[in-house]
Nucleic acid binder design. Sequence first.
RNA 1: GGCCCGUUCGUCUAGUGGUUAGGACUCAUGGUUUUCAUCCAUGCAACAGGGGUUCGAUCCCCCUACGGGCUGCCA
Length: 507
Amino acid sequence: MINYIEFWRHGRAVECTGLENQQGCKPFRGSNPLASAMKNPRVRFAPSPTGYLHIGGARTALFNWLFAKQNNGKFLLRIEDTDLERSKDEYIDQITDALKWLGLNWDEDIVLQSKNNDRHQEMVAKMLKDGTAYKCFLQKEELDNLRKESEQRKEIFRVPQTFRNLSPEKEKALIEEGKSFTVRLKVPKGETEFNDLVYGSIKVQNKDLDDFIIARSDGSPTYNFVVAVDDADMKISHVIRGDDHLANTPKQILVYKALELDVPIFAHLPMILGSDKKRLSKRHAATNVQEYKEKGFTSKVILNYLSLLGWNPDSDKEIFDENELINSFQFKQVQKKSAVFDEKKLLWISQQHLSEMSVRDLMNEIYALNSGWGDGLEWEYLKEVVKLIKDRSKTITEIASMSEIFFTDKLDYDSDLLSKTYNDKSIAIIKDFKSALTSIENWSRVELENIFENLMEQHDVAIGQVMKPIRVALSGIPFGPGIFDLILLLGKDICQIRLRHTLSEVE
RNA sequence: GGCCCGUUCGUCUAGUGGUUAGGACUCAUGGUUUUCAUCCAUGCAACAGGGGUUCGAUCCCCCUACGGGCUGCCA
């Protein structure tokens, strides 16, 4: 078993045919019941539909997906919708939409946990029959009191095992009395150990676990029970999830063992924290995938950044596409400590991606975000617009918003900027520029350069002093595309309109 | 309280029983550029603390502190 764990931690299936002599990489043996599952691993992402897809959930999904793709396995989706109070159908759609947007497509049909209720009941019944679980007639109030008492006495609270070995007659009597009961797993003596792909060997004493409840007094099964049954039914070979489940894993292993099911391999991923080092929550700026989409990050950017939280590629490379991630991902490079989400770095990653994207792809991204973008304008014109501003943008929304200056005749000028930019001299410069434009013969870069040189001479100033007032008049912002590119793309008429408009504002 | 997990620059991280503890983001400074952005260069900045083991510990062991998770008839 250890060999397999080493195997999955360090190597990819294709590298480990058994012919290699790679360290930690042993060939499969047919005797292991999980061997076939391991060649084609089955993993799952199992969100609760109680909110939008969280950024941490997205990373969990991503790592599952990467592992499945890398090893020719299946990536499954299970919706844990058994909490009727909080689960909502609209969230199921939100989550699946977000996963689709990210490109984390799942194999096979979505499993709705709520549909497995009969199966869960069946398994509870089986455990009762097998004697691996028992009916506990301790009432909630009694339990609460006992807990309180031992707290007062500063003792460690343990659930009393009063009903562990109740005779059938007594049991029947209690039921006839109308006593309600929960079903508890009969935790065996000893210890439970497993080898986490990230955290290594984890061992707990079973006595610290208590006979935990697998079915409530209303008959509904509890999480730690259900998750094990469902994972087993779905033939999940590797359970990859957040490390908030680390401490629950031994309980789940006891369920597998009680039901004589194959225990999967576990890999727990460190949490993602906000800038205050607290668990990412609604207190933080943005926590769900949808928000980042709206902020203008492409799915590839999100995937790239998320992959770097809690994992490192064992090289200096930081910009990855999906295929590169699939090829590089390794559990042994996964961090044990939680990682802080840093939007600055996200922006940098985004910028790197944008600079490598084609104008056409960028335009598609812009349209996906805002279908009305550049309405009524020529495709070729829009292409030029994007070409001019793409290298100056960190996000898709930045491109979209900066492109606005190319979409109207008249601009809304910022009065502070105008008063800072214009004085008698700079007003004289744009006036001269305006008349030079009127008499321009060839609408070309060379011609424009000549005009600028003349203006510099006439007014005895450096190019910056010519450029700045013209730029502000034409674009309304003190930065942006090269001035000649700007003028050429806007065209003579719009330039004239904007110069006139500026003059009317400042004079 | 008990159990489990973690702790290298502000952030993401690399790293080894002997290193000037490396890279990336951020920030600062300088350079290139018609502005901005890019790009380049330089700089700031870390081994949580205390004990051991050792000739020598950031690295191995123990303790403490801090942080997180679990401890529920939530998932």
